[in-house]
Design a protein around this nucleic acid. Structure first.
Length: 397
DNA sequence: TGTGCCGGGGA
DNA sequence: TCCCCGGCACA
């Protein structure tokens, strides 16, 4: 914590970058070494070692002193080689621009051997490995720039997450290192979108530019960047952070969408989207109302007609209306239809109540009756039934 | 509107 | 029971 503050001072940008770069390598290596140590020895000792290192780092403001102090914390490394490496790293990186983007592998090539047989876990710092620490491209960059990162990120990490399992963290860091070796990091800060090739650089960028300065590191920056790699979309350790980062932004971006569906249903689009169901509902309601309110429509209202929108009745015109007034309007319309289209029948029904209950008048046959055959003038020639206005017996159907 | 026919009513 | 007719349904 304190180390982060002291290192990230206003004038310590470049040196900090250098430290980070160099440190990232060593971080991974050392950390893996620590893992092995944990496996071999006790975890307690390792933790104590880290704590000592951080304490020392926190008290150092000079890069060299920092590196030296860092060396102290690496009992398993050859102090000379480590010192040389870090000094060189500090020099190279100090000479470089602040922007990690500029850091091209060619600049690290001068030290490119040791493709790191010393994988993150392999690690014990062989001499060749010391030069390999700076190999950025070589696959096992995992041991790469994390020395300082360890002193910074790890400081914060350990400071905040002492209780985290070391193994899990190692895995995460390893994956980060691997990713950082190939991909880029894009700042997710609203309106920024800056892309850096270094995770450390990105973190620093976020911390300084967005989080209000180095004082607010606390690994918050992890939440504000994401890897942009050509090959992977590997869910980085910050998968939670990614989800979190995507949260605010996605919430911002999705704000128009979700509310659109949630808050703006009355909009035309929402209405149109919901039109089918509404139409169906209207149909259903209309059918229900027709079924219950108007018998004449019931005959015509088949589901097919409803689905095909073959609405010829006044009810169709009432569809767009609101449901509350809809039923009422439909009933009114159908009442109107009843009044206008079925008056005679209703009148007939009411006029002859006695006949309605049992008489099923058969359809009029095609056969001519006495009336037609003989005509009204010759009524005397009709059959008795015809004369009596009964069913014709002479020309029955 | 014309026709067929049912049902009611009167003689 | 016969006859007549009002009235409705249907084309």
């Amino acid at each position: 914590m304190a180390a982060v503050k002291s290192q990230a001072g206003p004038g310590a940008m470049q040196s900090t970058a250098g430290r980070k770069k160099g440190g990232l390598v060593r971080h991974c290596v050392r950390e893996n070494a620590d893992v092995q140590k944990h496996q071999q020895n006790s975890t307690l000792q390792s933790s104590l070692g880290l704590g000592e290192e951080w304490t020392a780092n926190s008290e150092q403001s000079d890069t060299l002193l920092f590196l030296q102090s860092s060396n102290v914390s690496l009992p398993y490394r050859s102090p000379e080689s480590v010192e040389m490496d870090e000094i060189m790293a500090a020099m190279v990186l100090t000479s470089l621009s602040c922007s990690p983007v500029i850091q091209s592998p060619t600049q690290r090539d001068p030290l490119p051997h040791g493709p790191l047989d010393v994988e993150c876990g392999g690690g014990e710092l062989s001499d060749s490995g010391s030069s390999g620490y700076w190999s950025w491209e070589h696959g096992s960059v995992s041991p790469a720039p994390s020395q300082t990162d360890s002193s910074m990120g790890q400081l914060a990490d350990e400071g905040l997450h002492m209780e985290l399992e070391l193994g899990a963290r190692d895995e995460l860091e390893t994956r980060r290192c691997k990713i950082s070796s190939r991909g880029a990091y894009r700042c997710l800060w609203p309106g920024c979108g800056k892309v850096l090739t270094s995770r450390v650089g990105m973190k620093r960028h976020i911390r300084i530019l967005h989080l209000g300065g180095p004082e607010q590191s606390h690994r918050e920056e992890d939440f504000y960047y994401t890897e942009v790699s050509s090959e992977e979309e590997e869910p980085t350790p910050p998968s939670p952070s990614l989800s979190f980062t995507s949260g605010p932004w996605s919430s911002c971006s999705s704000t128009p969408s979700q509310p659109t569906s949630r808050e703006a249903p009355p909009s035309s689009s929402a209405l149109s989207q919901s039109a089918p169901s509404s139409v169906w509902q209207i149909h259903t309601e209309h059918l229900y109302q027709v079924t219950h309110a108007c018998a004449p429509f019931e005959v015509n209202m088949s589901p097919d007609s409803a689905s095909s929108c073959d609405w010829t009745s006044a009810g169709l015109q009432l569809r767009p209306q609101i449901s509350m007034s809809r039923s009422r309007s439909i009933s009114v319309g159908e009442q109107w239809l009843q009044r206008n289209s079925v008056p005679s029948r209703s009148h007939a029904m009411s006029a002859s109540p006695s006949r309605g209950h049992c008489s099923i008048r058969k359809g009029r046959g095609e056969a001519k009756k006495c009336r037609k055959v003989y005509g009204v003038e010759r009524r005397d020639q009709w059959c008795t039934a015809c004369r009596w206005k009964k069913a014709c017996q002479r020309f029955p159907d």
